[in-house]
Design a protein around this nucleic acid. Structure first.
Lengths: 174, 174
DNA sequence: CGAAATTGGTCTCATATTAGACTTTTCAAT
DNA sequence: ATTGAAAAGTCTAATATGAGACCAATTTCG
């Protein structure tokens, strides 16, 4: 169970009664770091995406593609796949859906007829603006336990990890 | 695409040619930290789990339940759900499948007839031993870019984040 | 230059996963 | 003691997602 008791939730949100047994899971696996990263992210991402899905009818790939296009338009599906590690069939499906929902526009790349450049529509931008505040708020809440320096520290480490990904994340090694 | 070119992969695995445009995604979203965590973890978890799924016929929930039981046996499905944030239907289904595969044993909790205590079978332990080395190796590879102190730093930050989860990760807030 | 290989995107089929309903057991309130 | 509410686990129906096949465009190689 969540490392809180029901009583604590109702009376003292800051007073926790962790179950030592299950908390042992966090550091007890043979892949402690990966597990902990997954543990934290699971609580952030899964409920967030489920809520967006219920409220806006967007699937996970759709959500993240809108996120990506908000940062940079004109990328192609395959670029996004390559960058993010998402599978091309899923991305393709999401792009088709997004276009059908008029949230995204596709334009064949003049340089390579196979490629399609993706752009946000106004509706796409708008729906993004409607779901991003919740994601931001939850990120803020998630990071509240860290001081400013610690957050910078975390970001620095994550940048390192992110930059290192191409060195080991080769599907052929599996 | 992955921030490497094909040539680099073949010739100079350490020589990368990041696409600046897509790399902007990493820090460019409005949820940079969450996104970066997800970015790194996606490359670790998704391919790993897919490989295990293909080789051992285990679904993601099955994989993680075996992981958890390896650390601590005798937990119940609901305890695992509460702790990990996984949904009970999925966990229930996984437990049923694991028992069917004779990887897990279930025993009704004498204290509460609704609850079922979960235990690994020998086969369950064995299959775990067959997939964990790959997960460990990939975790090691993932963390190779960090020095020892940095890894300790990361673990410390993750422990903080993990301990803080119960303070904000309430589904009712969504 | 032409054939073979690779790439970009889409589709089909099978399987995984979610929401919500359901049953039984246990807890809480009166 | 009784009743209503909540918890634990399972099931159903709908939908999401992965594997692999496919086709067309482009690149690679002899």
């Amino acid at each position: 169970m969540r490392p809180i008791s029901k009583e604590a939730t109702l009376d003292e949100p800051t007073e926790q009664e962790p179950d030592p047994g299950l908390r042992a899971l966090l550091g007890g696996t043979e892949i402690p770091t990966a597990y902990k990263i997954g543990y934290v992210l699971n609580f952030y991402r899964e409920p967030s995406f489920r809520a967006i899905e219920m409220e806006f009818g967007l699937t996970r790939p759709e959500i993240v593609i809108l996120l990506a296009l908000h940062v940079r338009e004109g990328i192609t599906a395959s670029e996004f796949c390559e960058f993010s590690g998402h599978l091309k069939a899923g991305v393709s499906r999401a792009v088709i859906a997004l276009e059908k929902k008029a949230l995204v526009r596709r334009k064949t790349d003049p340089v390579d007829n196979r490629r399609q450049l993706l752009f946000l529509t106004d509706a796409g931008r708008e729906i993004y603006q409607r779901y991003i505040p919740m994601l931001r708020a939850r990120e803020t809440a998630m990071l509240e336990c860290l001081s400013k320096p610690e957050r910078r520290q975390l970001d620095r480490l994550l940048d390192k990890l992110g930059a290192h990904v191409p060195n080991w994340a080769k599907a052929s090694e599996l």
